[in-house]
Amino acid sequence: MAGGPSRALLDEIASRPGRDTFVSSVIKGAFITLSLLFLAALLFAPLITVFATALSKGFEMYFNSFADPDTIAAIRLTLITAAIVVPTNTVFGVAAAWAIAKFEFKGKSILITLIDLPIAVSPVISGLIYVLLFGMQGWFGLWLQEHDISIVFALPGIILATMFVTFPYVARELIPLMQQMGNDEEEAAITLGAGGIMTFFHVTLPKIRWGLLYGVILCNARAMGEFGAVSVVSGHIRGLTTTMPLHVEILYQEYNFVGAFAVASLLTLLAVLTLIIKSLIEWRQKT
C-alpha cells in the first residue's frame, strides 16, 4: 500500500481526543437503541400482531381458514398472477435495461422517465386507466363485448394492472448496475467471435445476476401484495377475482378476524420464503 497514510499516522489519529470517549459511546448506544426501537415498533410489533391474531383461537381454527374454497381460490389467483407477471417483467426489464445501458439512441431519457412512471403514479390511477380503456364505457369496451372478451373485472385485467405497477422493479435495479459495469467485457467477447445471445448468457447475465435476482424478488413481493390497482379492476367477485390482499379485506369486513389474519400471515410467510430462497441461492453461490 505505497502512498497511503503511515501506520504511525493512523495510530496518532485514533488516539486524538474525541474518539471513543464516554460521550461518543453514549451517542452510539442511543442511535442503536433508537433504530432498534423504530424497527420493533414499525416491523416486529405488527408482524407479531398478525400471527397472534391469526392463532388467537388455536391452530385448528387457523388451518380451517385455509379450507375455505374462496380462500384457496384467492391464493391460487395470487400465485397465477405472480407466475405470469414476474417472468414477463423480468424479460421486459432486462431488455429495457440492456437497451438503456448499452446503446445510445434518441428518446432514451423519455424511456427512462416512462419506466419510472408506475412508481410515480398512484396505484388506484394505474387500475383506473384499464377501466377507462377496456371498460364498457371505455375506448375498446364495445368491441371487446362484441367479441365476448372480458379484460376488466377478470383475470386479464388483474394481470395487466399488476404488471403495470411492478414493471419498474427489475429495470430500475439493472440500469445503474449495467451502466456502471460498462461494455468492455461484452466487446471483448464479441471480438473473440461470440454472438449476441452467447455474449448475453455467458458474459452479461453472470455479471448482473445478483441485481437481477434482487429486482425479481422485489417485483414478486409487490405483485403478490398489490392492493390498490387490483382493487379497481377486480370487481370483487368472491372466489373468482379476489387476490389474497383483497380477500384479507373481505374477511376482515365480515368480522372473520381469524380468517383475515390467517391469510395475512400466509402472505407474510410467502414474503419470508422469497427472502429465504434469495439467501439460499447466495449461499450456494459462495460454496
Binding site: 364498457m136 372480458s150 373485472f153 370483487h236 368472491r238
Partner: peptide
C-alpha cells in the same frame, strides 16, 4: 358468485362492464 362493496361503487362497476 357474490361481489360486495359500497352500493355506489358497485353500480359504477356494473356500468363499466362488470357482468
Amino acid at each position: 358468485k357474490q361481489s360486495h362493496s359500497g352500493s355506489g361503487s358497485q353500480a359504477r362497476a356494473v356500468i363499466d362492464g362488470l357482468d
